[in-house]
């Protein structure tokens, strides 16, 4: 099999293991947009602490990756800063309105066979496909 397919399978396995450990340890789903949004609301100290711990883990994992091989990361494909700002606003607003993102709906929700998450995942993948076609056509995305 192609190396990048194998990498996708190995990386996906780590993501699946991570979601399983989250459930086993603290009984929660790994919903990253929800974890971030929870920090923006008034919370007890304890509730904020586990969220910050998870986000720190995501960041330190990034430090390990970039120290091993900077090619784990690449630059965004949009032309200029404005598309990134608009994209961030859409992702932030959309994931809270839609109660989840790729992790919460796409990995955890689909694994739980939640109809809500299946519907959400189909929607954001389908819209993403159409959006990329459109953005490439008008040249916002390379």
């Amino acid at each position: 099999m192609k190396t990048e397919w194998l990498n996708a399978i190995y990386g996906g396995a780590l993501i699946g293991i991570s979601a399983s450990l989250m459930l086993l340890f603290v009984g929660r789903v790994v919903g990253i947009s929800g974890i971030i949004y929870g920090l923006l609301n008034q919370n007890t100290k304890n509730d904020s602490l586990w969220r910050l711990s998870f986000i720190s883990g995501l960041f330190v994992g990034g430090l390990i990756l970039s120290s091993q091989n900077p090619a784990f990361f690449s630059a965004a494909m949009s032309n200029g800063q404005w598309p990134l700002i608009v994209a961030g606003l859409l992702v932030g607003f959309g994931t809270v309105l839609g109660s989840g993102c790729t992790s919460g709906h796409g990995v955890c929700g689909v694994s739980r066979l939640s109809p809500r998450s299946l519907f959400a995942t189909l929607t954001f993948v389908a819209v993403g496909i159409v959006a990329v076609k459109l953005f490439k056509l008008i040249g916002i995305v390379q």
Binding site: I32, S33, I36, L58, A76, M77, S78, P83, L84, V86, A87, G88, L89, L90, V91, F93, G94, T95, V96, L97, G98, S99, C101, T102, S103, H105, F119, A120, T121, T123, F124, V125, A126, V127, G128, I129, V130, A131, V132, F135, I140, V141
Partner: peptide, 17 residues
């Protein structure tokens, strides 16, 4: 919400994680 998220995902190639 999922549709707006899909649009942003396609525009930047980033999701939250």
């Amino acid at each position: 919400g999922s549709a707006l998220f899909g649009m942003g995902w396609g525009l930047a190639g980033y999701c939250p994680g």
